[in-house]
């Protein structure tokens, strides 16, 4: 079954066409990579799919439900989580508060429940342990290092238990050891059945981590397939190297 499918997405900003009739089909349970030169429309595609911006035309379906035009929080409740290109945490909230912002279902009982409600805090501590931040639960997020903030951002997304996770440049600005660690985490989460779509410029990471790669150029996909195939695809080489 397809977890995320988009048909004929188009978005222009003034005279610039950022996404130009793009189709996308993600299969459940895979780690998908989305690569392409700067300005090829990857982040715009992310923003359309997550409801942050409205497409001029086209449809988005999530697990069989059409979510075109839905607000971002509704799409999040439908099981889609995302991180941002430049890591975004809530700086003046503690690590634990950052975790508890996220809501799987906005039920009144949960919303008005205390931050110290044991079940929620335990789930949050579980995720923090997995990313190695449990000892910093009471620290303000602004006091974490950039790498720790990246891990916190991912952990906070996981609080809502999303089945599909979009990562926008998870390796951007972090050291090699942490890149490996994020990669391992993604593999573990994928083994638990979560689907990933990863935008990344670090080719080593993309090629080793992703099982399926989609190449974007000038607002639309130009190739898709397993890493080995993509690496030798002449259209990809042309888009990247201009040869």
């Amino acid at each position: 079954m397809s977890t995320l499918s988009a048909k004929g997405l188009r978005k222009s900003f003034g005279g610039v066409v950022a996404v130009d009739g793009a189709d996308l089909d993600l299969h459940e349970g895979r780690i998908n990579g989305l690569i392409g030169p700067n300005g090829s429309g990857k982040t715009t595609l992310f923003n359309i799919v997550t409801g942050m911006i409205k497409a001029d035309s086209g449809t988005v379906r999530l697990g069989g439900t059409e979510v075109t035009g839905w607000s971002p929080h509704r799409i999040a409740h439908a099981g889609l989580g995302r991180t941002f290109q430049l890591c975004r945490v809530f700086p003046r909230l503690t690590v634990m508060e950052n975790m508890l912002v996220s809501l799987r279902r906005p039920r009144l009982r949960d919303i008005l429940g205390g931050l110290t409600s044991k079940a929620d805090v335990e789930v949050a501590m579980g995720w923090l342990e997995r990313v190695g931040l449990d000892h910093l639960a009471g620290t303000d997020a602004r006091d974490l290092s950039y790498g720790q903030q990246k891990l916190l951002e991912l952990a906070a997304v996981l609080m809502a238990d999303p089945q599909l996770i979009l990562l926008d440049e998870p390796a951007g600005g972090v050291n090699p050891a942490l890149i490996d660690r994020i990669g391992d985490l993604v593999r573990d989460l994928n083994a638990e059945g979560r689907t990933f779509l990863i935008v990344e410029h670090n080719m080593a990471m993309v090629m080793s981590l992703c099982q399926h790669i989609i190449v974007f150029d000038r607002g639309r996909p130009i190739a898709a397939g397993p890493p080995a195939e993509i690496q030798s695809d002449p259209r990809v080489l042309e888009a990247y190297l201009g040869v």
């Binding site: 942050m52 607000s71 971002p72 929080h73 912002v101 809501l103 906005p106 205390g114």
Partner: peptide, 26 residues
């Protein structure tokens, strides 16, 4: 202040777009 609702409100103060992406009906 001590509810998850409060955490959501504070998240709006810090970064509204991000709060919305995390499922907060801002």
């Amino acid at each position: 202040d001590r509810s998850r609702y409060g955490a959501g409100l504070k998240a709006i103060r810090e970064d509204e777009e991000k709060a919305e992406a995390l499922g907060v009906p801002t």
